[in-house]
Design a protein around this nucleic acid. Structure first.
Lengths: 196, 196
DNA sequence: ATCTATATGTCAGTGACAGACATATAGATG
DNA sequence: CATCTATATGTCTGTCACTGACATATAGAT
């Protein structure tokens, strides 16, 4: 086999992360990333279909893990309950990657074009979750609605966890699902209505 | 005042819609759109920050209409109830634009780059909705969750309405909100659990 | 009739990305 | 050990999205 492909990929991701963090996404050229990684611009675009994509590796891993967990949830689970189990099952993986996703978040937060891509990835993941719910027998459009509500809960929990990592991600997930149930209650108790 | 600006805008949008529909988004160049509209490529990019944006005019109108309706909902409304009122209040506007949004949907459905932009616009709208809910006194992250669930319901209803325009959009909205409530019920009654 | 603000034209340049073709290297094969 | 091969990479060239700088045209105010 030829020159080490995966290593070049890793070098490209690392170089991109560093340059984006230092100079910003728009001010960093694909050629610069390639140069720092010791390859050519053309090689960069052989590894990633476009400049943004270098920041979105590993999304597919999360997707397949989620899919598998959803399928394996007990059949008597409601759609939301199945999603809850799945999210808890990948919490560990997410907590592991925190050191990588932390700087990534800052770069994305500073770049509209990257936010657009992230939102799209989120939507794609949601789509995959919806299709997996269908395999459990959930009707198509109902599955889509459940997936969107569930992924909203996941984002909610992740935001809370990024702000406060001291309590684990699982704890944030529990609270977030309780919030979803409380959403239709009148706004009397102004703060979280459903927990202690 | 100088040459008619708004008219050039409209010609550009029309030309883009026609060319995208005929040849596809990727195969259509910005210069071609400009030529058909009787202006220069440079002028195209003075009216639209990028090539995709020509298909996303009028989103801001919907946003402001939604915001206003949310603020004006009775204070005793739950977040979801406030959103429901707001959606119903813009249903008429949406039904009016159907002839425009119909071909637009097909073009977007055939172009990943446009789907990405649409998802982003959807997210931006959701963000605006969340911030408006906060003005009603809904706590920040709870507002975000409600906005996402609510916008999911809106999409659900719009999809149903596009597939079956015979019953009005308001009817689809009613059904969609009932679906949201039924999401946490066990999957016994396989079809919509909450209505008649 | 002139004057002005604003829309548009013109020109040149940068950078993302793709096709075509050549070259280099790790490992299989003899 | 020499060769051979699949695959990764380099090189070159081209298209197109998008931008800055500067010139020009036009509808309306004076």
């Amino acid at each position: 086999m030829p020159r080490n492909k995966e290593d070049a990929r890793r070098r490209l991701v690392t170089a991109a992360l560093e340059l984006f963090g230092a100079s910003g996404f728009d001010q960093t050229t694909a050629a610069q990333i390639a140069a720092r990684a010791g390859v050519t611009e053309r090689t960069f675009f052989r590894h990633f279909p476009d400049k943004r994509e270098v920041l979105f590796v590993g999304q597919s891993i999360l997707g397949t893990a989620l899919s598998q967990a959803i399928v394996e949830a007990p059949p008597e689970c409601s759609p939301i309950a199945a999603l809850r189990r799945a999210f808890v099952s990948v919490a560990d993986m997410l907590e592991q990657n925190r050191q990588f996703s932390e700087p990534r978040r800052h770069i994305i937060a500073a770049t509209p074009a990257l936010q657009e891509r992230e939102v799209a990835k989120h939507a794609a993941l949601t789509q995959m979750v919806a299709e997996t719910l269908q395999k459990r027998g959930v009707e198509s459009r109902r599955a889509a609605l459940a997936a969107q509500a569930g992924m909203a809960v996941l984002s909610y929990a992740l935001n809370g966890w990024f702000a406060d990592p001291s309590s684990g991600l699982v704890h944030h997930l529990d609270r977030a699902f309780e919030e979803l149930q409380g959403l239709s209650s009148p706004p009397d108790h102004k703060w979280a209505p459903a927990f202690k």
